[in-house]
Each structure stands twice: as structure tokens, then as C-alpha cells.
Design a binder for these strands. Structure first.
Length: 502
RNA sequence: ACGCCAUUAGCUCAGCCGGUAGAGCACCUGACUCUUAAUCAGGGUGUCCGGGGUUCGAGUCCCCGAUGGCGUACCA
């Protein structure tokens, strides 16, 4: 960058009028190093033999051995001709003991000028101090990067959520729990892949740029392709592509990836989020229930070592089998209203209204039941529960129940009152699917921006024949929240969507 | 989108009834060869989120705006 060159050439590197003392001092220190031919930024590599954790975990074997370590200085205690500091590397912290008689006078004078936040490499001998802390007695220390900004406070860390999300790197440096959450997130996803790969599923990738966004009811983001001179949508779900792959004979596929929904932001919603969808030919939603409970409980066992987890102070037992309830049963259980006995919309509306639910005009019996479910049931579903047999009106891609055409073979997973997953026996009848799309298009024309668009290419695929298939979608972020005991989705996303500051 | 709350030093925070801004850590100077929130002596480094207004006087009161958190709505 031109600016950089200008700054380097200027009298004081990158220094501006409004800079505070700390910033000025650090730039001054860097300039002195550069003038003395000790520019840390000219160093391109440093050979590291051991991490902090390796040394601490294997002290018996490592004691007296010569090691090379590297990391960021996060504490520093000088006592004249000897000093202690801790450096932090990828998996922990280790103390360095730096003595003038071990590193030499010049190196020690340089070391005294190192700041918290600087990146150093050190070579020395593993030992234990009089106070019993495993440390490295340093005989050579090298500055590998100068930190020009002070770190947040060592004792309280970085609390300001705004800064934590915007400057996640600082959050990761000073709040160790945050790092652990993201390490756990990575392990969860790895275990999911292992689970599915071991069962013969093929991981695939389908387009993020869609000409027709489908597979969910949500408002999409719109973008533009210049050469084609056409608008494209960011995907809201991979469903319709994955089913095309089932038509194509791949039979067992899954995709883990980012979805984009142009909706509100909350403690449970981010505009871009990760979802997994799984499709398996020749099975149905009951098969998906078994797969879902086995998958989630196995991942918990392998990552956390238990199926009984704590979430927000509440014990949640993920051990299969999970409770299974139809939506009608659940509504009856929590409200006393038996939708099996309700004959028409008027009656449903009257009952819902008597329970204090405001019913918008134009709803069907099924939609009113779903409204009752959302209002009175969801929040009670703390332990893992499958709610199944959803009204057809809200399930445009799902097979009807053979004996109850107003219901579909669909379930959702609820844990801690939150929707964690969604699955169904996939609709493979192209004639029925076309009718459902037409209904969705009518809703859309009536102003429902979240209703599906007609997807002729998808219908063509179905017309070639799709086997009976079970499909399952699981929100990765919400699963990670559950398994890492995080209240907000922003705490499981490294860089949650934020408005820019002015 | 609406409501409530927050925003003061690099970070974590205090600041009363409106009287001209403070602590700890960090930082600077000095001492100190086993410290670990090192210690000891000295030093305050600030667009009080921004813009208006009321007032002799605003970090403090009023209005508008920004960002964030929470709640509601939205989100199968």
C-alpha cells in the first residue's frame, strides 16, 4: 500500500497527531529496532519444536531438554537482571525465564523493551521454578513481530460485546473460553462428517448462486452477475439441488454449508448461517428420526464425552430414543385442545381466540393448529423431542400421510424450546409437487415474500423419477450453541454480521 | 421495524443535587537475578459516542442521530 511506504519514509512510522502515548512509544521502539538492523518484520520463519501444551503435558520426559517455542507475550515481570514472561501459543501458555547471564547483555536490553502483545520465539531448557511452574530457561530470544497496539486488560479481558465481535482476534487472544468454543465448533463439524462418511454418505457441494431460491420459506439476498447481466439469489437452502442428486442416483448425500436469509438478526438468527442437509433414498421420515438422534447424541458423546449436557443451567439428556409426539398430540397436551375433533376453520378460530391467540384472517385449520403449537407448545420442549405430522399448508415439499392428506410426513427437532432440525419424507410425486408450487406462487402473488417460486427445472428432475427419500436439515450453529452452552448465535460465529461503525 | 438499557483513558469501570473528570490494569522514568494480578518510588496519557438545545456553567438535564445489548415482531 502506498500509504505504508509513505509512513515508513516519514520521520515517525505511522505516527499521527492524535495518537496516544502508548501507540507513539511502540512505533518509536519499532523504528529503533529497524535503525539497528533488527527489524522483526524481516524475519520470515522460526523453527518451533514444541508447543506450550506438549511441554507441560510431558514434563517428565521434557525436563532438561532443549526446546524452541514461540508465541505472543501476554504477561511480563522484570526484576532487574532477570525476568519472567508468559507467552501464549495455539494451545496454551508457558512461562519463560530470561536471565541476563543466559541471553547476553544486548539481547537482555532488547528484551526489556518488549511489550505485551509482541510475538517472540525462544530457545532454552525445560525446567520447573522454585514455585513449581513448568517453564523454559531461555538462552536465546527473538522478536518475531512487534505489536503496535496495547492488548486489552489481562485481568478482565475484553468484555464489550461490540468490540469482541468486531475485533474477534482480540477476543481470541484474551478470552481463552472463546477460543475453546471455536475449537469445539470445529470438532463438532468434523465428527458430523465422520459419522456420515462412515455410513456411506457422500459429501457434495451445490450452488450458492441460485436463479430460483428454493427449499425454504425465506426472503433471499439478491446479487448481480455482470457478464450475464442478470440478478442471482444467494441460496436459502440446498434442498432442491440435493434432491436432484437423489434423482441422479447418488442415493446418500449431504452438504454442510452457508445459507443466506434476508431476515431479522437476533440471538438465534444471523443473516448467514451454517446448515447441514442429508438425503437418503429408500427411507422415510421415521428413518430420519433415528438418524438424527443417533447423529446428535454420537457427536455429543465423541466431542464432550457425554450425552447428558448442561445448557444455560439446565440438564439436557441427548440419549436416544427421544420423545416422539405428533403436533396434534403436543397441542392437546399443552392446551387441552384436540384438533382431531375440529371440523372447520370457524371452530378452530373460535377455540384459538378463546385461548387468547390472535388469528389473522385467511388461515386454514392446519395453520391455526401450527399457530397454537408455536404459542403454547414450543417453549415447553426442553428435552429433545420430535414433533411430527405437520399440516400440509406449511410443508410444500413434503409427502402427504397416505391416510391423512391434510398432514405431511414431516418432523422438527426441538431442544430447549428451540428448533434444531427439520426433516421429512420427501415429496417425489411431480404432479403433486407442481400443485404445491402453484399454491406457493399464489401466496407469493398475494404478497407473501417468503413463499416458494415455481422451479420448473426441479419439477423436470422429479418427472424422471425420484425414489422415496428421507431428508433431514440440522442448523449447525444452533447445534454448536447447544453443545458449547452459548446463549447467542453470535458467540458461535467468529464474525457475526455487524453494521459498520460510522 | 418497535420498546428498554448502555456508550467516560488502550482495557475494566466509578463519577452523588448541574460547578470544569477519577481508580485499577496497561504505558513512561528509576530500583530489583525464581516472579506469576511480582514488588517499591515517581508520572494521568481524555473528541466523557456524535450533533443541537436549556443554563452563568452540561459527562450529568432535554431533543435528534450512531453503534451495541436485551425484549417483542419477523424468522417453516
Amino acid at each position: 500500500m502506498d500509504n505504508n511506504i509513505q509512513e515508513r519514509n516519514s520521520q515517525v512510522i505511522g505516527e499521527t497527531e492524535d495518537m496516544n502515548e502508548v501507540l507513539k512509544v511502540r512505533r518509536q521502539k519499532l523504528r529503533e529496532l529497524q535503525q539497528n538492523g533488527k527489524d522483526p518484520f524481516k524475519i520470515v520463519k522460526y523453527d518451533v519444536t514444541s508447543s506450550s501444551k506438549e511441554i507441560i503435558d510431558n514434563f517428565e520426559a521434557m525436563e532438561g531438554r532443549h526446546v524452541s517455542v514461540a508465541g505472543r507475550i501476554i504477561t511480563k515481570r522484570g526484576m532487574g537482571k532477570a525476568s519472567f514472561c508468559h507467552i501464549q501459543d495455539r494451545d496454551g501458555r508457558i512461562q519463560l525465564y530470561v536471565r541476563i547471564d543466559a541471553v547476553g547483555q544486548e539481547a537482555y536490553e532488547d528484551f526489556k523493551k518488549y511489550d505485551l502483545g509482541d510475538i517472540v520465539g525462544a530457545k532454552g531448557e525445560v525446567f520447573k521454578t522454585h514455585m513449581g511452574e513448568i517453564s523454559v530457561k531461555v538462552n536465546e530470544i527473538t522478536l518475531l513481530a512487534k505489536s503496535l497496539r496495547p492488548l486489552p486488560e489481562k485481568w478482565h479481558g475484553l468484555r464489550d460485546t461490540d468490540l469482541r465481535y468486531r475485533q474477534r482476534y482480540l477476543d481470541l487472544i484474551v478470552n481463552p473460553d472463546v477460543k475453546n468454543t471455536f475449537i469445539t465448533r470445529s470438532r463438532i463439524i468434523k465428527e458430523i462428517r465422520k459419522f456420515l462418511d462412515d455410513r456411506g454418505f457422500l459429501e457434495v457441494e451445490t450452488p450458492l448462486l441460485n436463479t430460483i431460491p428454493g427449499g425454504a420459506n425465506a426472503r433471499p439476498f439478491i446479487t448481480h452477475h455482470n457478464t450475464l447481466d442478470m440478478d442471482l439469489y444467494l441460496r436459502i437452502a440446498p434442498e432442491l439441488y440435493l434432491k436432484r442428486l437423489i434423482v441422479g442416483g447418488l442415493e446418500k448425500v449431504y452438504e454442510i454449508g452457508r445459507m443466506f436469509r434476508n431476515e431479522g438478526i437476533s440471538v438465534k438468527h444471523n443473516p448467514e448461517f451454517s446448515m447441514m442437509e442429508i438425503y437418503e433414498a429408500y427411507t422415510d421420515y421415521k428413518g430420519m428420526m433415528e438418524l438424527a438422534e443417533t447423529l446428535i447424541s454420537t457427536v455429543a458423546q465423541n466431542v464432550l464425552g457425554t450425552m447428558k449436557i448442561m445448557y444455560q443451567g439446565q440438564e439436557i439428556d441427548l440419549t436416544p430414543p427421544w420423545t416422539r409426539m405428533t403436533m396434534a398430540e403436543s397441542v392437546k397436551k399443552y392446551t387441552g385442545v384436540d384438533f382431531g375433533l375440529i371440523k372447520d376453520v370457524e371452530e378452530a378460530k373460535k377455540i384459538a381466540t378463546s385461548k387468547g391467540v390472535e388469528v389473522p384472517p385467511g388461515l386454514t385449520v392446519g395453520e391455526i393448529m401450527y399457530l397454537m403449537f408455536e404459542t403454547f407448545v414450543e417453549e415447553n420442549l426442553i428435552q429433545p423431542t420430535f414433533i411430527y405430522d405437520y399440516p400440509i399448508e406449511i410443508s410444500p415439499l413434503t409427502k402427504k400421510k397416505p391416510d391423512r392428506p391434510e398432514l405431511t410426513e414431516r418432523f422438527e427437532i426441538f431442544i430447549y424450546g428451540r428448533e434444531m432440525g427439520n426433516a421429512y419424507s420427501e415429496l417425489n410425486d411431480p404432479i403433486d409437487q407442481r400443485e404445491r408450487f402453484i399454491k406457493q406462487v399464489q401466496k407469493r402473488e398475494a404478497g407473501d415474500e417468503e413463499a416458494n417460486m415455481m422451479d420448473e427445472d426441479f419439477l423436470t428432475a422429479l418427472e424422471y423419477g425420484m425414489p422415496p427419500t428421507g431428508g433431514l436439515g440440522i442448523g449447525i450453529d444452533r447445534l454448536v450453541m447447544l453443545l458449547t452452552d452459548q446463549y447467542s448465535i453470535r458467540d458461535v460465529l467468529l464474525f457475526p454480521t455487524m453494521k459498520p461503525r460510522d
